[in-house]
């Protein structure tokens, strides 16, 4: 075990922004903290970094209680959402500052900096000011700073959210190779479920400061424990249907199929996505989304069906999954 959070809680004023959070992150594992804004994922990261103090609970790193240790001494490598590069220092000095403070000799500084600059392909940018860099380059500098801290733990706070969609997809494998090649645990905060699925070994989905479900991306997708998890993971969003009293049926758009004598419905909206198309249909159970092949002409009145085994069943009162079998 490498990073453990035990009964972690934080209150601001009267509001509990994190409640009874228990998490373990193994060496070399990447755990994504996922959830909508205000769910407490960034707050959790700040507690782990030591930037805020928990109201209750403890944090252990390598078996040592670090709950009351100052962030200055936590040996944590963090990438901020805004990257937080020092605007008055060039790339080289941005990276060197932490080393200098720790009293590392000029020769060692240079050696380590050259290594990291080379690794992140920043050699040619070392004299640039942060304002002269593109978003992707800034992210690499921020990552380099985290690597140079020689940390016991990596914390990434929405590291991709300031980049455009294209760049994000390009950088994902690069980021994975750089930090996941190491032996340290990684905590990765994001609000983008797709990014979480792409980057993380496991996902912890938070809602209003509580852990809603934790598991591999596959587990969250295939066996969501609540309607919230089912709705948050998977795009386009899952359909919720009330077929019988007290039970909510969830069926993913990609599992809905045409049939000759199924549920009659009418197309009210179509989106053509190139590789597939999204249909919005009106039926007696309300609106239903489905994904079909792109090259298909569809009449406006059709019948729908799906396999019973693809259904996710939830109790209407507690919104919790009814475990089948």
């Amino acid at each position: 075990m490498s990073l453990n959070l035990e009964n972690l809680a934080r209150r601001i004023g009267q509001k509990w922004i994190i409640q009874n959070l228990n998490l373990n992150v193994d060496p070399g594992e990447c755990l994504a903290l996922l959830g909508p804004s205000g769910c407490g994922k960034s707050s959790t990261l700040r507690l782990i970094a030591g930037l805020d103090k928990p109201t209750r609970g403890s944090i252990y790193l390598l078996g040592k209680d670090i709950t009351n240790i100052s962030p200055l001494k936590r040996r944590v490598g963090m990438v901020f959402q805004s990257y937080a590069l020092y605007p008055h220092l060039d790339v080289y000095n941005n990276l060197a500052l932490g080393l200098k403070i720790r009293g590392i000799s000029i020769k060692d500084q240079k050696h380590r900096l050259d290594n990291v600059l080379g690794l992140l392909k920043l050699d040619l940018l070392s004299n640039y000011m942060p304002s002269q860099l593109s978003g992707g380059q800034r992210q690499r500098v921020a990552l380099a700073r985290a690597l140079l801290r020689d940390p016991d733990l990596y914390l990434l706070d929405e590291p991709m959210s300031n980049l455009d969609a294209q760049l994000r997809e390009d950088l994902r494998p690069e980021l994975r190779n750089l930090i996941l090649g190491n032996k340290q645990p990684v905590v990765y905060v994001t609000h983008d479920q797709q990014e979480a699925m792409a980057m993380a070994n496991r996902i912890a989905l938070l809602k209003e400061g509580r852990l809603e479900q934790i598991g591999t991306p596959k587990e969250l997708y295939l066996r969501p424990r609540t309607t919230f998890v089912a709705g948050f993971i998977g795009r386009p969003q899952i359909n919720f249907i009330k077929r019988e009293p007290g039970i909510i049926v969830g069926i993913r758009p990609e599992d809905v199929k045409f049939s000759i004598d199924g549920l009659p419905s009418k197309i009210i909206h179509k989106e053509w996505h190139g590789s597939n198309q999204l249909l919005l249909l009106d039926s007696k159970f309300g609106k239903i989304r489905m994904i079909t092949k792109a090259n298909m002409d569809i009449p406006s009145d059709i019948n729908l069906t799906w396999s019973k085994s693809k259904e996710h069943l939830f109790r209407e009162d507690s919104k919790e999954a009814i475990i089948k079998d």
Binding site: L51, P71, R74, V76, L97, G98
Partner: peptide
């Protein structure tokens, strides 16, 4: 905060 994490 970044500076704190950097150990300053």
């Amino acid at each position: 905060e970044a500076a704190k994490i950097d150990g300053l």
